[in-house]
């Protein structure tokens, strides 16, 4: 085994053990925090596949999380078991993802960003006016009785692990390769006999499904849903997280999202929590201007 791979696996195992044993020594607040980070990470993995790997911007991630969350909440209200509600929420988010994929397939760059933004905002705006989803006053999530607090925690840990495995398998398969090709030179992909639209659609659907999964878990985490929790700023936070993680690596995306949510949750004083947006905006801008690399180059040439 190559040393790099060995390192990767050992970090993974250590992290897994740490996460699984957290309830033994961690406080309730730290458990909540880890749950939140993991949920964001799941949505971030989907976004990494779509935006990082395939180079397709989506500003609608929060909308798909809303679909997952509200579907779960609604089905639980109808008395469905959790084991059915979550998969159905994922499926529905994926299906709605097709609706975005149809127009998005033909679009590039700024137009794609506009459409996905309209899509995401449209979904939360539709929810906030729809009475059977609680409209703007929100909706209670009837968490199943048999799910104690640590039960939810373990469920989130296990599901995010499975999601991570799924995303990395996808990335290293021929799909990941084709997505990367689409990101770099879409027209060349056609000359290789690959129908880019097909793989792009799947990227949208898979990204939406990841968001749906994150949304479903988030519903259980929040226990009360309101359309404002799924606003545009959530999509931007996720984007800022994967940009912070370097955009092109799955592990980077998870790390970036974890770092950003820890920063926002813990380090910023509560009365200045809106500085989180300033931070996210600054991250997005600095990384697009490649300031970290530029600074590093200057340091290298001047001092090293």
């Amino acid at each position: 085994m190559a040393p790099k791979q060995f390192l990767k696996y050992s970090i993974g195992i250590l992290l897994g053990l740490g996460l699984l044993s957290l309830p033994l020594f961690g406080s309730a607040a730290s458990i909540r925090l880890v749950e939140l980070v993991l949920i964001y990470s799941i949505a971030g993995m989907g976004l990494q596949l779509l935006t990082g790997q395939a180079g397709l911007i989506s500003l609608g991630q929060a909308g798909f999380m809303a679909i997952g969350a509200y579907t779960t909440a609604y089905l639980l209200q109808l008395g469905w078991p959790l084991a059915l509600a979550i998969p159905l929420a994922v499926l529905l988010s994926g299906l709605v993802g097709i609706l975005l994929a149809i127009p998005a397939n033909r679009l590039s760059g700024p137009y794609l960003a506009i459409v996905s933004l309209a899509f995401g905002i449209g979904i939360s705006s539709w929810i906030s006016h729809t009475n059977w989803l609680g409209a703007s006053s929100g909706m209670r999530v009837l968490t199943p009785q048999q799910l104690p607090e640590t039960g939810l925690y373990f469920m989130i840990v296990i599901i995010s692990f499975v999601a991570y495995i799924g995303a990395s398998v996808l990335r290293s398969s021929k799909w990941g390769l084709i997505w990367q090709g689409i990101r770099e030179q879409e027209i060349l992909i056609a000359h290789l006999g690959i129908k880019a639209a097909y793989y792009k659609s799947w990227a949208f659907v898979i990204c939406a499904a990841f968001a749906g999964l994150a949304g479903a878990l988030w519903a259980l985490y929040l226990t009360y849903l309101s359309p404002t929790s799924f606003g545009f700023t959530l999509s931007i936070s996720l984007l800022a997280g994967i940009v912070l993680g370097g955009l092109y690596k799955l592990e980077g995306a998870i790390l970036g999202i974890a770092l950003l949510s820890l920063l926002k949750q813990n380090l910023l004083p509560t009365d200045l929590s809106s500085l989180g947006w300033v931070l996210e905006g600054a991250i997005l801008m600095l990384f697009m201007l490649a300031l970290p690399q530029r600074l590093w180059q200057i340091i290298q040439t001047k001092w090293l």
Binding site: S173, K174, L177, L192, I194
Partner: peptide, 10 residues
């Protein structure tokens, strides 16, 4: 691998 991708699994 990418060029071969449309003709079967990797």
């Amino acid at each position: 691998q990418l060029a071969q991708a449309p003709y079967g699994p990797l």
